[in-house]
């Protein structure tokens, strides 16, 4: 059987979740490997969520927020941006390959951006193969601010 990646996406409620909905409404087809989890703001994404996903068997994680400057909570996504940079340093140490984590801004009318991000991460992760978490024991992770 061919490898079907399991990917968790974290979407902010205001732009990116709406953009993902619009992809469906416009019947744009994308890879069925990505499961969305709704957050109020991408800035509310706890690093522990990403680590938990890998621990539970995810092969990749997609994080989506509003375009910079358009966050519903003013500047939450700038905080996301900073946090993701730090988080990527940590995950690199843990042996999680760069393409397994992707940050994508998706506006409420940017269905195509969402679809291509989903397809891109699915293909990247498929090429990498399943994530074997036992390389390093991933704890639940402390929060990174």
């Amino acid at each position: 059987m061919s490898f079907e990646p399991k990917i968790v996406a974290f979407l902010c409620n205001w732009c990116s979740y709406a953009g993902a909905d619009l992809a469906g409404v416009s019947r744009a087809k994308c890879a069925p490997n990505v499961m969305s989890i709704r957050l109020m703001c991408s800035g509310g994404l706890e690093p522990a969520f990403v680590l938990k996903a890998f621990k539970e068997g995810a092969d990749g994680v997609l994080v989506c927020g509003c375009n910079l400057g358009d966050c519903h909570y003013i500047d939450g996504n700038y905080k996301t941006l900073m946090r993701m940079t730090l988080l990527k340093k940590l995950t690199r140490q843990l042996g999680i390959e760069e393409p397994r984590i992707r940050l994508q801004w998706v506006c409420a009318s940017c269905a195509e951006d969402f679809v291509s991000a989903v397809n891109k991460i699915t293909e990247d992760v498929r090429a990498l193969g399943p994530y074997r978490q036992n390389k390093v024991e991933v704890g639940s992770g402390s929060a990174i601010s």
Binding site: M40, C41, G43, G44, E46, H72, S142, S145
Partner: peptide, 12 residues
């Protein structure tokens, strides 16, 4: 309710 604070609180 953005949880920006929650994501940052070092003590959880």
């Amino acid at each position: 309710g953005c949880n920006v604070c929650g994501a940052a609180c070092p003590s959880g």
